[in-house]
Design a protein around this nucleic acid. Structure first.
Length: 517
RNA sequence: GGGAGCGUAGCUCAAUUGGCAGAGCAAUGGACUCUUAAUCCAUAGGUUGUGGGUUCGAUUCCCUCCGCUCUCACCA
């Protein structure tokens, strides 16, 4: 690789502006000078022995005098230079490692000839430094370097130090720059990590086992969504990227894995928005001998626990609201929530009457395409649409909406008292769906009918329908114990706990259109 | 896909009615051994996203295309 260094590699620098080009060349020359001085600008094998946070923890409370009197201890740290202030024959630099930042004082007195090599450092370079710690006149704990080692030459300029990087497009496309420039970003992803870890520990502690099921499916199953398609060459078959793992996980319950969960990606070929990324992370779990009501209890416990683990409190500030994840979330049947929202005008009889519902829905629907879609909806779909229209966005605090219509719940168990509704709930927070759960339909004959209903809906022109999954029926025919299952959108939960307005802020590399070159 | 907005130096932002494209940071040279957005002097850095049009003259007005943001629709 060394021979590329002093050549002008036009292809690699095609995206450089003229100023950046100049900096690039200057830094290449500095790297060359390091080589001449016996330092490899891309060396390997350097072992830092200490971290910034460790040093702050150890000496943060000591005064300048105490540090001076204490027996001298030498530390070896490594990191990226994120700030630099030079004074001719001395300099202060700020070194950042994974634990935090530490100021390092570089003095010609202490470094001798190595100081000339240090002067070739730029903002963004990585270096290692060794020396004792002291406190500056202004009180900052700092390492006084007696030895310094260049580790990696950075050839491109860092984003501006004061305003940082604010251009959202660059932040998403070049997330590494975002992470360097905006410390909050790292905190967001650390929180996301804590969230996922908490959930795993929570479920593991309840005897669930984590599994991985296929991401490439021969059928569209487990949800109503448009899939991505792909192709396997050797088998010469088309496959769908999974839109949900549901039917595979329930096959495992049939197989005797009574408590299973999976945290993994789903892919849906639909619109992109502040709440939708084409690939997103979903937790799905299934528990035999539980009902949807048990899962409401479990969900409250898991999510309020997660809120505390991630943010330190069950009251969470989100986009100007305070969301209260403390126990005792509201549980409201869907029709009741609709009735409240439209002012009590709909009787039970009205709720069962498609024409009455259609009339109600058309009152507030003006877009022509939407009105046409409403004309072909059945009673259950109309109830679902009314709910989304009038209620969903008003549910700020965690709220369970229960008893979804059977026709919009093709995998959920019918309610024993009323077969037109299911033993299902969705959890809404901040006006968004966060979780979806139900007592599972384990009657193979009913499931067959529901699949046929999906085919019928497709006939009517609905684009998001499930395929008929023969093997899944066969699995149910072997017998699935009474089971309840749930899906939770991890990205959306992460948004709530990190006060993120856009799902792109909790996904490291959200999908963007590639730039034309 | 529809609607609204945005795109100027590596980064953050200016530019009056359409009249010589500017500043700070970063960079380069110089001074400086306790700085915290260090300071001071000097220098350099631009295909104003792309391609067209109107005009004596376009960062500015109009159109095309590209990308991003918000929003509606679809959806989680």
């Amino acid at each position: 690789m060394a021979e590329t260094e002093n050549k002008t590699d036009k292809s690699a620098e095609a995206d450089l502006g003229s100023k950046e080009q100049e900096i690039y060349q200057q830094r290449l020359e500095k790297a060359g000078k390091w080589r001449e001085a016996g330092f490899n600008p891309y060396g390997n094998g350097y072992r830092p022995e200490h971290q910034a946070a460790e040093i702050h923890a150890k000496h943060g409370a000591q005064s300048a005098e105490e540090l001076e009197k204490a027996p001298p201890t030498s530390y070896t740290v490594a990191g990226r230079i994120v700030a630099m202030r030079t004074f001719g024959k001395a300099a202060f630099i700020k070194l950042r490692d994974r634990s935090g930042e530490l100021q390092v004082h570089m003095k010609k007195d202490a470094l001798g000839d190595a100081y000339e090599a240090f002067k070739l450092c730029d903002l963004g370079d990585f270096l290692g430094a060794t020396g004792p710690v002291f406190r500056t006149k202004t009180g900052e704990l700092s390492l006084s370097a007696t030895k310094f080692t260049p580790l990696t030459k950075s050839l491109r300029p860092m984003p501006e130090k004061w305003h940082g990087l604010t251009d959202v497009e660059i932040r998403y496309r070049q997330r590494y720059l975002d992470l360097i420039s905006n410390p909050d970003v790292k905190q967001t992803f650390l929180k996301r990590n804590r969230l996922v870890r908490f959930i795993r520990e929570f479920l593991d502690g309840r005897d669930f086992i984590e599994v991985e099921t296929p991401m490439m499916h021969p059928l569209v199953s487990g949800a109503a969504a448009r899939p991505f398609t792909t192709h396997h060459n050797a088998l010469d078959i088309d496959l769908y990227m999974r839109i949900a793992p549901e039917l595979y996980l329930k096959r495992l319950v049939v197989g005797g894995l009574e408590r299973v969960y999976e945290i993994n990606r789903n892919f849906r070929n639909e619109g992109i928005s502040t709440r939708h990324n084409p690939e997103f992370t979903m937790l799905e779990f299934y528990q035999a001998y539980a009902t949807y009501e048990d899962l409401m209890d479990l969900t409250e416990e898991m999510i309020s626990g997660a809120a505390r683990a991630v943010t330190g409190d069950t009251k969470v500030a989100y986009q100007g609201h305070v969301l209260d994840f403390g126990k005792g979330w509201k549980r409201i049947p869907m029709t009741e929530a609709i009735r409240e929202a439209v002012g009590g005008a709909l009787s039970d009889k009205d709720m069962a009457d498609p024409d009455r519902l259609r009339h109600e829905l058309l009152k507030t629907t003006h877009a022509e395409a939407e009105r046409r879609a409403i004309e072909t909806m059945n009673q259950g779909e109309l109830v679902g649409a009314l709910f989304e229209h009038h209620v969903e966005s008003t549910l700020v605090h965690p709220t369970f909406i229960t008893h979804f219509p059977t026709s919009v719940s093709p995998l959920a168990r019918r309610n024993d008292q009323n077969p037109e509704i299911t033993d299902r709930f969705e959890l809404f927070v901040a006006g968004r769906e966060i979780a979806n759960a139900f007592s599972e339909l384990n009657d193979p004959l009913d499931q067959k009918e529901r699949f046929l209903g999906q085919l019928e809906a497709k006939q009517r022109g609905q684009q998001e329908t499930m395929d008929y999954d023969e093997d899944y029926i066969r699995a149910l025919e072997h017998g699935m114990p009474p089971t309840a299952g749930e899906g939770i959108g991890i990205d959306r939960l992460a948004m709530l706990f990190t006060d993120a307005a856009s799902i792109r802020d909790v996904i490291l590399f959200p999908l963007l259109k590639p730039l034309a070159r």
